[in-house]
């Protein structure tokens, strides 16, 4: 029984980190209306930035956030501004320009190969890692400390993004653009700037996810692939564009992955995840928690 509880809690912790990795995907989709196929690569870049920031400065990996967040925001902002914006301008009349998806696929290949070129194929684990394998024992249960921190980071990030979208002038402009681009233009909102910001915010959350991951996860150039498939499933489960939907979708995946192996062979978990994914697509295509774009 205690094992079941332990698995449940660990599943929630890991699941919230999955949610964090998918947060940027759902934000960018909510505003730009395109699936960003480079999202896994942005996460990978975030992990490298976090890894090097912590390694080179000797900082605690979580302190590295103060450099990772601005670097990743700027990276995403400029990426959208230089590569994706021109296509949006060329395809002004199209609501969901397919060419943008192709460009993000290109960005995915370029980033992964660039990192392979620069850093080589080897797996890198954080040295001088104060959290390596650290466990917290509560009432006979063993909980991973870095995952606990990851959970905290995920919840704070989701809360902060939600607050920003709800309560600030720019956040309202982003929401308005996500609901009706043309009407937002008539409010004096520069939609291309909004896209840049949304991409920057989405990329910054990928950086935060990178920070949450590196204390217990190796970095290598194709690491993003591990998370992006999950990311797509999570955002569809939670409802495309929904911030809390992404967190809950992540937690569901985390729970399935950690609790199901108690009852069946582990290979079944993936099948269950995909079955759930298909079931949601059939029964409620807007996602379990999606009120279309509920922020």
């Amino acid at each position: 029984m205690i094992y079941l509880l332990e698995d449940t809690i660990n599943g929630i912790l890991m699941g919230s980190i999955y949610g964090l990795t998918a947060l940027g995907l759902t934000i960018i989709f909510g505003v730009l209306k395109v699936i960003n196929f480079a999202h896994g690569s942005l996460l990978m870049v975030g992990m490298y930035v976090a890894f090097w920031a912590a390694t080179l400065s000797g900082m605690n990996p979580y302190v590295a956030l103060i450099v990772v967040v601005p670097i990743m925001y700027a990276f995403g902002y400029l990426l959208q501004n230089t590569l994706i914006k021109p296509i949006f301008k060329a395809e002004k009349q199209v609501r969901e320009p397919i060419t943008v998806i192709i460009v993000t696929t290109g960005v995915w290949y370029i980033l992964d190969n660039l990192c392979l070129l620069i850093f080589g194929p080897q797996y890198r684990a954080l040295q001088n890692n104060p959290l390596r394998g650290k466990m917290l024992e509560i009432g006979g249960m063993m909980l991973s400390v870095p995952k606990l921190w990851g959970f905290v980071a995920a919840m704070i990030t989701a809360g902060a993004v939600y607050w920003f979208f709800q309560k600030t002038r720019m956040g309202r402009a982003i929401r308005a653009t996500s609901l009706d681009r043309e009407a937002a233009s008539l409010m004096g909102i520069n939609q291309y700037k909004v896209y840049n910001m949304a991409f920057g915010i989405g990329t910054a959350t990928a950086g935060i996810a990178g920070v949450a991951l590196i204390p217990f996860f190796n970095v290598y150039p194709s690491v993003g692939v591990l998370f992006d498939m999950k990311g797509y499933i999570i955002v569809v489960l939670g409802g495309l564009g929904s911030i809390w939907g992404a967190m809950l979708g992540g937690i569901i995946i985390g729970l399935i992955e950690s609790v199901c192996p108690q009852f069946m062979t582990a290979t079944w978990t993936e099948a269950i995840v995909y079955a759930l994914f298909l079931a949601v697509l059939f029964i409620k295509p807007s996602g379990l928690f999606g009120v279309k774009y509920d922020w």
Partner: peptide
Amino acid sequence: EGRRLFTLM
């Protein structure tokens, strides 16, 4: 034309 409100706000 057609008001174009931000329906979910």
